[in-house]
């Protein structure tokens, strides 16, 4: 008698638990997960480069259903404001941080503080001196520098005098590009780097200083400018001085002005990066890290660069690199 009673009790308990499990799993399928919060903090917000990155980031945020906040200081040298913005993002409850660091060293405290607060870190475009970063997505800047150097050698001159127009010396990507350029050029006998200067990432400032450089060193027949504002400024300087024929200008990034000037001969080569991909993949990686798919996130992702010249700029591939398909 007692045995059958026990058996019945056990069966009943088992059945109830099975029923509960089924109910739970049936209920849990249509659960909507809360939106993850991702903060994007970059070097500035006005250049076409960053606007393109924002477009990519927003596309990824829509696709993965994320809440995206975008911040950037007014100038690309203001690392203090950038640190404050990172801190602000942490306070606002961001779960992941996608950023491009202005200063390789001085952004570290804010980054580490964010890591301490439990945020996942994704670096795009420009790295930072911290090992808390899960992945870096951007151009292989060193290789891009070498590409720029090779492009510079196409100028057709036998004796090449180079002027380098670089930006903030504390910025990782600019430094790497310069390293790449020097790697190639310093080995060659017929190439001399006459002047290398660091200007602000503002087109007007770059223009003034490039003009000064050209006036000071009229023997310069190749200029390499290392990012969008410096390229625009250098191009303006060459145009204003009427030196299209004499100066072979190698610039970075796609900007409406430099594309115009590429057609008219002021700019000769553009090394076009893929900021849309950086923004998109940056946010996508942040999502994957938050969703626990850590093994799908590689530690480095190389977004391609395209070498654009007057001859190939209107080929379909270069069109795709130069002109963004959006927003009518």
């Amino acid at each position: 008698m007692a045995r059958s009673k026990k058996m019945r009790a056990v069966l009943l308990a088992l059945a109830l638990s099975v029923g509960l499990l089924c109910a739970c799993s049936a209920v849990s399928t249509p659960v909507t997960t809360q939106k993850h919060r991702v903060a994007l903090v970059v070097k500035s917000t006005e250049t076409e480069f960053w606007k393109s990155a924002f477009a990519g980031a927003k596309a990824a945020a829509t696709e993965y259903n994320l809440e995206l906040s975008i911040r950037g200081p007014e100038t690309e040298e203001d690392y203090k404001t950038q640190n404050e913005m990172i801190g602000q993002a942490v306070e606002d409850g961001a779960e992941a941080l996608v950023f491009s660091a202005i200063d390789y060293e001085n952004n570290v405290p804010a980054i580490e503080a964010a890591a301490q607060a439990g945020l996942k870190l994704v670096a795009i475009d420009s790295g930072v001196a911290s090992d808390k970063i899960s992945t870096y997505i951007g151009t292989d800047n060193y290789a891009a520098g070498k590409m720029a150097a090779s492009a510079a050698l196409q100028s057709g001159e036998s004796q090449i005098c180079v002027g380098l127009v670089n930006y903030d010396a504390n910025s990782a990507n600019g430094q790497e590009r310069e390293k790449g350029v020097r790697e190639i050029l310093e080995q060659l006998d017929n190439v001399e780097i006459v002047q290398a200067m660091n200007v602000f990432s503002i087109a007007e400032n770059a223009r003034i200083r490039t003009e000064a450089m050209l006036k000071q060193h009229p023997e310069i027949n190749v200029i390499i400018a290392f990012n969008e504002p410096t390229s625009v400024g250098a191009a303006r300087a060459v145009r204003d001085l009427g030196l299209e024929e004499d100066v072979w200008l190698v610039g970075f990034d796609s900007n409406v002005e430099t594309v115009d000037l590429l057609q008219s001969g002021v700019v000769d080569v553009l090394i076009v990066q893929n900021p849309y991909a950086m923004g998109y993949l940056g946010v996508e990686s942040a999502y994957k890290l938050l969703a626990g798919q850590t093994d799908e996130v590689e530690s480095t992702v190389d977004t391609a660069t395209v070498l654009v010249t007057r001859e190939n700029m209107f080929t379909p591939d270069c069109q795709k690199a130069l002109f963004s398909f959006a927003g009518w």
Binding site: A55, G56, N274, Y276, Y280, K320, A321, F325, A326
Partner: peptide, 8 residues
Amino acid sequence: QQLLYSGI
């Protein structure tokens, strides 16, 4: 289309 053009 932009995603396609960016090779992503």
